[in-house]
């Protein structure tokens, strides 16, 4: 659900003027309470992931990651993200282009509908595809007759992932392209540029960081999604498990350090995402 909140460009704190701030004691107390809260809720879990994953030593860690089921889960996670992220990116760019460069009736409705997946529980996001393509779903009998597997197979996992990551790129691009207006593109058109050339030479350079930002958030969610994928996966070992689902299975078998070893891989992804996000944020604030 990242991206539902506009990102503040963090930075400048106001100069401390004595009558406009609190006494030193109050300041330190507030900072202390805030850090304690963050420590217990956010930092401690991160530390525990590292500690638990190395509890049985380096070799156990490596063997948990090189387990064939873990590797096949990694492969499925990568495949899923490799399909879901580009498709949602194409959609995001197309939708943002239509919404910000033109006027048409029903535009507000379209913008609202794009956000819809954020309001849907992950479990419901998976459920809707089971109702459509599952054995007892609307298209189930037809799919069965033609020997097409969607639910409990890779296509279902990809579809559920596409649903939960649907708004990320569009959400990032719409406000950005709205703010940039249409002058640059109109100038290019009046100088004789056509279609794709306008987009690649004029629009894309203007939106590249925002686009990348949206894609990174989209990717993080695609690789980490649990609820929606859990519903459609069927949890077939070595076949329909993504990394988060593999963690659940191993954890429920009481192989805690193996579960945490795989979890540490996903935590690394989260940290890389956060670093990339903060680098891109400072780029974007420099350019605007």
């Amino acid at each position: 659900m990242a991206g539902i909140v506009t990102n503040p460009r963090s930075g400048k704190s106001q100069p401390a003027r004595p009558h406009l701030t609190e006494s030193r004691a109050v300041r330190y107390t507030l900072i202390g309470i805030a850090l304690l809260f963050l420590g217990l809720i956010v930092i401690l879990p991160m530390v525990s992931v590292i500690a638990e994953s190395f509890r049985k030593g380096w070799e156990a860690y490596v063997s948990a990651l090189s387990d064939p089921d873990a590797l096949s889960a990694l492969k499925l996670t990568l495949i899923t993200a490799a399909i879901a992220v580009p498709l949602n990116t194409i959609f995001g760019v197309a939708a943002a282009w239509a919404i910000t460069k033109f006027k048409f009736r029903g535009k507000n409705l379209l913008v609202t509908l794009i956000d819809l997946p954020f309001a849907v529980s992950p479990v419901v996001s998976g459920l809707i595809y089971v109702l459509l393509f599952g054995a007892q779903g609307f298209l189930g009998p037809w799919l069965d007759k033609h020997d097409i597997n969607i639910i409990f197979a890779t296509p279902g996992i990809v579809l559920a992932t596409m649903f939960v990551t649907f708004p990320f790129v569009a959400r990032e691009l719409i406000p950005l392209m709205e703010a940039q207006g249409v002058q640059d593109e109109e100038a290019a058109v009046s100088l004789g540029a056509r279609g794709w050339r306008v987009f690649f030479k004029v629009t894309l350079p203007n939106i590249k960081w925002g686009l990348l930002y949206g894609m990174i958030l989209c990717n993080a969610r695609a690789m980490g999604e649990f609820g929606a994928v859990s519903v459609v996966s069927g949890h077939i070992r070595g076949e329909t498990n993504t990394l988060p689902l593999h963690i659940e299975i191993v954890y429920n078998e009481y192989q805690f350090s193996a579960a945490f070893a795989v979890a540490s891989l996903l935590m690394l992804l989260a940290i890389i995402t956060l670093v990339a996000k903060s680098v891109l944020e400072s780029r974007m604030s420099q350019e605007h």
Binding site: P45, S48, A220, G224, P244, A259, L266, L274
Partner: peptide, 11 residues
């Protein structure tokens, strides 16, 4: 936002 929910859950 960035950490997969399953990781947060087991931690």
């Amino acid at each position: 936002f960035a950490l997969p929910t399953a990781v947060a859950g087991i931690a």
